[in-house]
């Protein structure tokens, strides 16, 4: 299962004022359209799920990591990879703000899930 996500935290918001027009996400269909200037048609990527900046940590965990955690408790192995360009919010996805129930990332949620 592969998910892609866009988050607007950290360096994406600090410092520069960026233009955001080359990338479009359709969360319903899991599609991402990326169009380079000069290209007539955008490149299309499809993933199992796509999350934009309106997504909640809770849903990201529930739809991606939760099934893996459940499997592990049943005695199977599971691996969760986080990948991406530096500065795009990977650490936010993984750890988030551990003490904030809304902004907690995958790790603190997985820890809780395992002991339930």
């Amino acid at each position: 299962m592969v998910s892609a996500l866009i988050q607007l935290f950290g360096s994406a918001l600090n410092g520069f004022f960026h233009q955001f027009s080359a990338l479009k996400m359709v969360t319903k269909t899991g599609e991402i359209f990326a169009q380079k200037s000069g290209d007539n048609v955008p490149k299309v990527f499809t993933f199992d799920s796509v999350y934009d900046w309106n997504s909640e940590q809770e849903n990201i965990f529930g739809e991606t990591a939760y099934p893996v955690c459940e499997n592990v408790i049943q005695g199977y192995n599971g691996t969760i990879f986080a990948y991406g360009q530096t500065g795009t919010g990977k650490t936010f996805t993984i750890s988030g703000v551990p003490k904030d129930p809304k902004l907690r990332g995958i790790m603190p949620r997985a820890f809780e899930n395992i002991f339930e």
């Binding site: 592969v2 892609a4 080359a22 192995n77 691996t79 969760i80 995958i106």
Partner: peptide, 21 residues
Amino acid sequence: NTKTVMISNVGPADYNLDETL
């Protein structure tokens, strides 16, 4: 025999489009 999930983070800025791609 493992269940694997890959989560990819991408930035929305046009400036980073190459890396995003």
